[in-house]
Every structure is written in structure tokens, then in C-alpha cells.
Amino acid sequence: MGTPLGDFVRAKRDSIQPESLGLPVQGRRRSPGLRRSDLAARAGISVEYLTRIEQGRDRNPSVAVVNALADALSLDPAERNHLRYLAKITGGECSAHTRPAPPRRDVRPSVLETLRLLEPGIAMVTNRLGDVLAHTSGYESVTSGTGLLDSDAPNLTRYVFTDPRARTFFADWDDVADEQAFDLWLGPTAGNYEWFTAELSPVAGPDFTRRMNRHVVPRRGTLRLSHPSGCELQLLRETLELSSDAQQLVVFLPVDEKTAHAVDELRRRPHGRLRAIS
């Protein structure tokens, strides 16, 4: 049985063309990407040890080995952080296997007050599982009619993968789906991640599982929305980590005057005010 760390290393190795690292291409290859022997040589470890890591038979590589693999794979800073995180949770997988409780859904009063100060802007409080825990009236305006906030406990990840309306609402649905799948690895706890993915996988289907296992670090560019009213919105995202709560405060800012005008039009429609969901 593999591990998140082994899956990521293998996926990155398969995605690298030898010539991009100045290595010769020798004859026909049975599989794409970099050979294990090439990666092991670049990292200064044995092929046998690399095989154990990729297959999940070694779950506790040293910090030096993890850093050597990051160098050998030419990972960018975001990918390096992800590799270190996967090494950490892979090493802790042997802890007790009791069913974890869902993550906390309450939002601190001071965070709710921050949201009030952001009115009538577009902002929400979420966690890495995609739970929408609180939001401003501006956020409700830009998501009105999409179905995202229809449930008592709205969840962006579940919406993206299970609601057909999401594929229209998010103009770059593939990118958003990659973002939501990747963020699950950074869930409030490893137990929360396992619980949520076990619940979501049967209804989200193989596309969700494939994105989870790709370990592609998302670029998080401009968010483009096709609102049911016909408005086309382009929003920048600024995220403030609330590390003590394992939550994030996300603020959405119009990219241009056209989007700002469209948001103003949506705000004029009747909606609720600040909403905390718990």
C-alpha cells in the first residue's frame, strides 16, 4: 500500500523529462518520466531505498533525504512545502485509527467582527476541507442562485465535485477542482482529511480521486465566475491564515471596473447580512 509521500515522489518523477535535467534519453522507455536510478543518483540515495519510499515501505525518511529528493526533483518552494508536509503526515499514519470527529465549525467572535468590518465586501471563513463557516452579504450576493449556500452546512469542495451547477459557475472549473482537492491534504488534521475523503469519494467519483493523487500544487490565479444572472466576474483572492483555528479568512477583490460594477449590481438585490454557520 502506498503513502501520500510515495505517491507524490512517484508522480513528480513520472512528470519530469530527462532532457529537462540535462540527462541523456537512452532508447525506448517502458514508462514516462525520470528513471528511478536517475532520481536516486541525483538525490544521493540507493535505488532500493527510493523504491521503498515510493511503495510506502519506508514511512520515515530523514529531513536530509526529504530535502535531497526536493533538490533532485527541482521542486519549487510550494512543492517543497508540500513534500515536507506529506513526509510529516506519512510518518504519523501509524497513530490510533479511531474515527475522528468532524472539524470545529464555530468561528471566533473576533473573526466574525472582522467579517462585519469587511461589509459589504466579499469575504468568507473556511477551512481546508472547504466548509463555508461564515460569510458576508457580499459573498452571498456573488454566489446567489448557484446552489453553493443552499445546504445547512455548505461545503465548497463537495459543491465543486458533486453539483453540476459548479461547472458553469466556475469558468475555470478544472483549476478550482485541483485547488479544492489539493487543500484536503492540508485539512485541520490528518484524521479529518481521511474522514472527509472517505465520505466524498463515493459520490464525487474517480475524477476526484485522480486529482487527489496527482498532488499538483495549484497556481491560484484570478477566480473567474459566470454568475447565473449573466454577470462575468473576475476576482483576486487574499487569504489570511487563522492557524490557531485551522481556518482561513478569504477576501475577494474585483480585478477591474467591469467586475466592480457587476458586484454592485448583485449587491442591490435582496440578500441576507453576515451569516455564521455552525
Rank of each mutant, 00 (worst) to 15 (best):
D131F: 09
L129S: 11
A134F: 01
E140K: 13
Y139I: 04
Y139L: 04
L149K: 04
D150G: 14
L148G: 03
G147I: 08
D178K: 00
V142T: 13
G147W: 08
D152K: 11
V142I: 15
E140T: 13
F170E: 04
D172H: 14
D163W: 02
L129M: 13
D150W: 10
G130H: 01
S144D: 12
S137D: 08
A153P: 05
G138A: 09
D175L: 07
F182E: 03
A171E: 15
L129H: 01
R167D: 08
P154E: 07
S151K: 10
L156R: 01
A177S: 08
F182R: 01
Y159G: 07
T168W: 14
V132K: 04
F182W: 09
N155V: 06
T157G: 11
R158A: 02
F169Y: 13
L149Q: 02
Q180G: 07
D183M: 00
D183V: 00
T168S: 13
P154L: 08
S141R: 06
D178N: 14
W173Y: 13
H135N: 13
F182C: 06
H135K: 05
W185A: 01
T136F: 02
S137H: 05
Y159A: 01
L133I: 12
R167M: 12
D183P: 00
H135G: 05
A166R: 02
V142M: 14
Q180E: 12
T143C: 15
A181S: 14
R158G: 01
S151Y: 01
R167V: 06
N155W: 04
D163L: 05
R165P: 04
L129A: 09
A134V: 08
G147H: 08
A177D: 00
V142K: 07
A134D: 04
P164H: 08
V142R: 05
A134N: 01
S141E: 09
D152H: 15
Y159E: 04
T146C: 12
P164Y: 10
D178L: 04
D183L: 00
T162W: 02
V132W: 02
A134Y: 00
P164S: 12
D150C: 13
L156N: 02
T146Q: 14
G147K: 07
P164V: 12
Y139K: 02
V176I: 15
D183H: 01
V160H: 00
R165L: 09
G145I: 13
S137T: 06
V142S: 11
P164I: 07
A181C: 13
L149F: 03
V176F: 04
R165C: 12
G145N: 12
T162V: 09
R165H: 10
L184E: 06
D175A: 09
E179H: 12
V132T: 13
D175Q: 11
